[in-house]
Each structure stands twice: as C-alpha cells, then as structure tokens.
Design a protein around this nucleic acid. Structure first.
Length: 107
DNA sequence: TCTATGACTCCGG
DNA sequence: CCCGGAGCCATAG
C-alpha cells in the first residue's frame, strides 16, 4: 500500500473532480486512469475512501446508474439522500435521467 | 507467494 | 432490458 502514487489516490483525484450535481461510473474512472479492466478495483478504492471527507464517493455509481455501494455508507439511504440533495432523482436505487447526469472525466 | 474478495463489466441467451 | 456465467485486477490476510 504505500507507494508514492497509490492506485487509490489516483482514483480519489478523479472523484474529487466530479462536479456538483453530476455523477460518474467506476468504469469511466478506470478508463481515465488507463486501467479499463480495473473497475472492480475502483470500487474497492471507494470502500477505502469513505474515511476521506473530500472524496464524494456517492457520485460514483455503476454503469447503469444504480447505487450499488449504498450499503457502505452509514445508513442504507445515506447515499440516495446525498444524491437527492444535489438535485438528482433516485428511484429504487436507480438514478433517473442517468445519461444526462453522467459526467465523463475525459472532458 | 498464494488465495480470497469485491462499491464492476462484458458477453451470450 | 433481465439473467446467469466468466473475466479482470489491485488489495488484504
């Protein structure tokens, strides 16, 4: 774990750049980091990121816009409430108008 | 060094 | 789009 630039840390840097009111996906982050097949590891990184206050992990969802990581937040509904407070609409763990809310790190 | 794990994604049906 | 199965890869123990 302790290299100068952890894979985790690179993930955090991308997540920090996600604009308010937007979301991105694990795959998009992995692709941006040049590790397109490491989406699962990105999710693993978010699990470790929940301690860092400046990493908006709730803005990262899977490719379908589903809040797969909601259970890793304090409460079952915490992630959804955070997203709704940023202007999103979440129904059954699915972000509505996901294609519109999606933010691409490459832009 | 090897095995297990997972907040994923792709593919075929 | 839904479902089941397989692949991938960094980290933890």
């Amino acid at each position: 774990m302790a290299q100068q630039h952890d894979f985790f840390e690179r993930v955090y840097e991308v997540v920090r750049q996600v604009p308010y009111g937007k979301v991105t996906t694990y795959g998009a982050i992995a692709l941006y980091l040049g590790a397109a097949r490491s989406a699962r590891t990105v999710g693993y990184a978010m699990n470790a990121a929940h301690a860092l206050i400046d990493v908006p992990a709730h803005r990262v969802v899977n490719r379908k816009g589903v809040l797969t990581g909601k259970h890793h937040f304090g409460g079952i509904n915490t992630m959804q409430q955070l997203l709704e407070s940023e202007g999103h609409t979440v129904i059954d763990d699915q972000i509505q108008d996901f294609d519109t809310a999606l933010w691409n790190p490459n832009e």
